[in-house]
Design a protein around this nucleic acid. Sequence first.
DNA 1: CGGGTTTGACCAGCGC
DNA 2: GCGCTGGTCAAACCCG
Length: 146
Amino acid sequence: MNMYGRSVVFPMTASYYCDGAWMFEDDAAARARGGGIGAMAGRPSGRIGFRTRSEVEVMDDGFRWRKYGKKAVKSSPNLRNYYRCSAEGCGVKKRVERDRDDPLYVLTTYDGVHNHVTPGSTSSRAAPAYSAPTAPAWTWSELQNH
DNA sequence: CGGGTTTGACCAGCGC
DNA sequence: GCGCTGGTCAAACCCG
């Protein structure tokens, strides 16, 4: 629960993209397909973007992210933040920026696949979805626990 | 003291 | 060939 009275950063309607193409799908529909977004995250390409309605750009997905840069892109008045997985040998990158048209939406793009386990996922976090290098790092339902 | 964040500068790729 | 844009690095700083 945050100061906005909403316990979660994720909306009922989720949009994401894979392999460069944005897709829009209802969260319920995504989960109904089985695995939801997580299934998409398991793709070899490892490029998945999320567009979520949240006030905070940083969402704890179980990994430790180290910010390594920020940039103001021409196409958007907002700043784009660049994060990298703090784990050594894990070259997963994360790009976070606010939507140009809807500032209360946050575009999060994951680039790469984690090759390690989520730190401290067994304690405060229920059921880490991570099991294999090509498996999704987390599940959609887990994200909703925020 | 360690790790993470910050910020500007640098570099590479692409388009014109 | 030049300019622009986006992406990354690295040193300094701040916080826990």
